[in-house]
Design a binder for these strands. Structure first.
Length: 450
RNA sequence: GGAGGGGUGGCCGAGCGGUUGAUGGCGGCGGUCUUGAAAACCGCUAUCCCCCUUGGGGAUCGUGGGUUCGAAUCCCACCCCCUCCGCCA
């Protein structure tokens, strides 16, 4: 969510920034709704101020006991002591105030409804606008304008024709596509034997790396979340189509651990010195992949359910740019230790994800498929998610709360990592060498010779 | 799923429908005292919004409705937490 103040102060800046992302949002409705909203608030506030004033006066007069005649009116002054006459004045004043307030049918309620309506409309509109890119993001309309920032390792050269992972995995009987489809349909698969163990070994090893060496705290969050949690991360309302939903309990299946990790501190005001937070979580991720219908249907490159290790940081605003660089390095370390050649790609404005202000993708080479696979996407979401989820912090005791910055990055996604491993470490005899770092947990140095 | 109990400020805990953003305590911050510290005493101690912004005003007592001139307080619905029973990995 963007800051409404920014629209008021510098609408042109917002317009340009959104345009650079290819989002030609009309700002007029935002500004107009905001103006109408403020006018309604002002009017309501003034009416309430008047009401409070009268209420206070009535409060001071309430309970004055006065003798009444048969028609409910106070007795004439001649029949009253001076003290009683004073009470009569108070009583009459109270009655006139009450009757006055009763008489004017109350427009406060109508104004409140008006404000609520305008706020909902404005809020709904703001929730559909993406984050603004950081100034140093290359401008471009699509992936062709992305920039390769650096590369690591040389793609291995093969003395034979390397197979794609689906052939390798089927021969090794470590991925069962047919039975996956039998159970759940296309884009589902079953890992078995060394395949299942490899995934588990990778997960454990990555979690250990990030917790023990990179200082992350391990989190195991729910995979089903409420709607507002999906809104907090930016997945709703815009990307409803890509999400699975349980109708009976109105819960959503997470497409990434980023979703629950964002809302872990939703609504909180974090104490001074609490930041930064570094979280790592491995969760299943569920994606309907409706937009990619028919694409990447072979193998496990694009599936409906997969495991992913996710890195997440909550930081003070002035540190987020620098922390993004560190986050990328933490993710890169996974590929380096597995000795998988990769490149770091900075996304251009037009290719940025919805909540992201700046992103780097890690792409690892898959020699069998002959393509660079995106195994990680690391993003600085600045205060975009923090606003949606209302996550703030205090710099000093007593200081005004400010929104935090949030960052996320895969560290890394399992299926594509396994693709790269299988295809890179395959041998001419169809077996696959297990990378050095995984041998202790795998208990073998080659897949498929069990 | 059934039966109870409960949700008030950073925490604990009061609150006959009327000058209650809310007594009191704890914690925190500042001050007095002290060589220093503790103790004692004094003061301060929420968030959001609006405006004619050294100031003024409005809202917020789980959430949303309702009753009322006026609701933390009364009524309804929902959400969440706790205890017990049932079921279950």
């Amino acid at each position: 969510m963007l800051d409404i103040e920014l629209f008021r102060r510098s609408p042109d800046l917002v317009r340009l920034a959104l345009r650079s992302r290819g989002d030609e949002a009309a700002l007029h409705p935002v500004l107009e709704l905001d103006a109408r909203r403020r006018a309604a608030i002002k009017e309501g506030d003034e009416l309430r101020a008047r009401r409070n004033q009268v209420s206070q006066e009535m409060g001071a007069l309430v309970g004055t006991q006065v003798a009444l005649d048969k028609s409910g009116n106070p007795l004439p002054d001649e029949q009253l002591t001076p003290k009683e006459q004073k009470a009569k004045v108070d009583y009459l004043r109270f009655r006139s105030l009450r009757d006055d307030m009763r008489a004017r049918s109350n427009p406060i309620k109508a104004l409140e409804e008006e404000v609520k309506r305008l706020e909902q409309e404005l809020g709904a509109l703001l929730l559909t606008l993406p984050n603004l890119p950081r100034p140093d993001v290359p401008v471009g309309t699509d992936a062709s304008a992305n920039v390769i920032v650096r590369s690591w390792g040389e793609p291995r050269s093969f003395p034979f024709e390397p197979l794609p992972h689906w052939d390798l995995a089927e021969r090794l009987r470590i991925i069962d596509f047919q039975r996956g489809a039998k159970l759940s349909g296309s884009r589902f698969y079953v890992l078995s034997g060394h395949g299942a163990r490899l995934e588990r070994a990778l997960v454990n090893w990555m979690l250990d790396l990030h917790t023990r060496e990179h200082g992350y705290t391990e989190i195991a969050p729910p995979a089903l979340v409420r709607q507002e949690v999906m809104v907090g991360s930016g997945n709703l309302p815009k990307f409803r189509d890509n999400l699975y939903h349980d109708d009976e309990d109105d819960l959503w299946l997470i497409p990434t651990a980023e979703v629950p990790l964002t809302s872990l501190h939703a609504g909180e005001i974090l104490e001074p010195a609490a930041l930064p937070f570094s979280y790592v979580a491995c969760t299943p991720c569920f994606r309907r992949e409706k937009a990619a219908a028919g694409r990447d249907t072979r193998g496990i490159k694009r599936v409906h359910q997969f495991e992913k290790v996710e890195l997440y940081k909550v930081v003070e605003p002035e540190h987020s740019d620098e922390v993004l660089e560190r986050l990328v390095r933490d993710a890169e370390e996974v590929l380096r230790r597995l000795e998988l050649p990769y490149r770091v790609v900075q996304l251009c404005t037009g290719d940025l994800g919805f909540p992201s202000a700046k992103s780097y993708d890690l792409e690892v080479w898959a020699p069998g498929c002959r393509e660079w696979l995106e195994v990680s996407s690391c993003s600085n979401c600045t205060d975009f998610q923090a606003r949606r989820a209302n996550i703030r912090f205090r710099r000093h005791p007593g200081a005004r709360p400010e929104f935090v910055h949030t960052l996320n990055g895969s560290g890394v996604a399992l299926p594509r990592l396994m693709i790269a491993l299988l295809e890179t470490y395959q041998q001419s005899d169809g077996t696959v060498v297990v990378p050095e770092v995984l041998r202790p947990s795998m208990g073998t140095d080659a897949l498929g010779v069990e």
